[in-house]
């Protein structure tokens, strides 16, 4: 029996997010939200492990109530239960306050063997949550995991593979651990329509909502108050989504190309 908790985020589909250069704001109006893509891979990994070792998969998300749509989808994929951690006091949290809130919710769930996060979100792309939550729970954390090779339920150990710049690392850890996984490590399964419908009909059976008091969090450590960082301003980035730098072939073009590859950390 393996008890797995997956943390997901309900994020605006950044591909549709536009920026208002005059007001200096992000236009989120009319932008639909989606489950943060690598979080789908995290769910898939959890469900695959459940299939292999038995157990339960829970999903948590610190999000506004609209995220319930995403949690329903997670349940439809096969997750046993989802927890929406939602409170006005959680608003404007930075990664530290978010990680604190999530760690309180995880502690509230109680026993667990594995906590999985998507490596980073498409909107803020920090990759902080996994390591921070691991730290706050006082258990080891590993990012960039591509594969869970083996879980030994007797010895309570786990063998993981991860990819770094210059090679592949194999780790063994004592359970419980927190891991983060990236997009592409597996193919997330299609949410089962029947389950999607059941979740729609009996939402309360599958999804529980927890507020600040429910998870016993310190009000000073959550939301804006609990966030050590402040966003001073946001301005439009000069670069478009694709740079569209098109040149006629020449020695200079090739040199410029190499320069761009270097800037993009490819060479």
């Amino acid at each position: 029996m393996l008890k797995i908790i997956v943390g997901i985020k309900w994020v605006p589909d950044t591909a549709d997010v536009k920026f208002d250069p005059v007001k200096g704001t992000i236009i989120r109006e009319g932008v639909e939200s989606i489950i943060n893509p690598p979080d789908l891979n995290a769910i898939e990994l959890a469900l695959a492990l459940k299939e292999k070792y038995g157990g339960e998969v829970y999903v948590i998300s610190m999000s506004p109530p609209s995220a319930i749509k995403g949690l329903k989808m997670a349940v439809a994929m096969g997750v046993d239960k989802a927890f929406l951690v939602s409170d006005r006091k959680f608003a404007a949290a930075d990664t530290l306050a978010t990680s604190y809130t999530l760690s309180c919710a995880i502690k509230k769930i109680g026993s667990y063997d594995l906590v999985i996060f998507g490596e980073e979100t498409i909107d803020s792309a920090t990759g902080h949550i996994g390591p921070e939550v691991g730290e706050m729970l006082g258990i080891p954390h590993l990012s960039y995991v591509t594969e869970v090779q083996e879980v030994d339920l007797q010895q309570r150990t786990i063998k993981m593979v991860r990819e770094v710049e210059d090679g592949v690392e194999f780790f063994q850890a004592n359970l419980p651990v927190v891991i983060s996984v990236g997009v592409g490590i597996n193919t997330p399964r299609y949410p089962i329509p029947l389950r999607r419908l059941l979740t729609e009909l009996e939402t309360n059976k599958y999804i529980e909502t927890w507020a600040l008091n429910d998870i016993g969090a310190d009000p000073e450590k959550v939301g804006f108050k609990g966030s050590p960082t402040r966003v001073v301003k946001v301005i439009a980035a000069p670069m478009p989504a694709r740079r569209l730098e098109i040149r006629e072939a020449s020695g200079e073009t090739v040199k410029l190309f190499i320069k761009r590859l270097k800037e993009a950390e490819i060479i």
Binding site: D13, A15, D16, V31, E32, P191
Partner: peptide
């Protein structure tokens, strides 16, 4: 399901 088109391209 996610982006309302089979290509998976942005709604916008």
């Amino acid at each position: 399901l996610v982006r309302d088109n089979p290509y998976g391209l942005p709604r916008s």
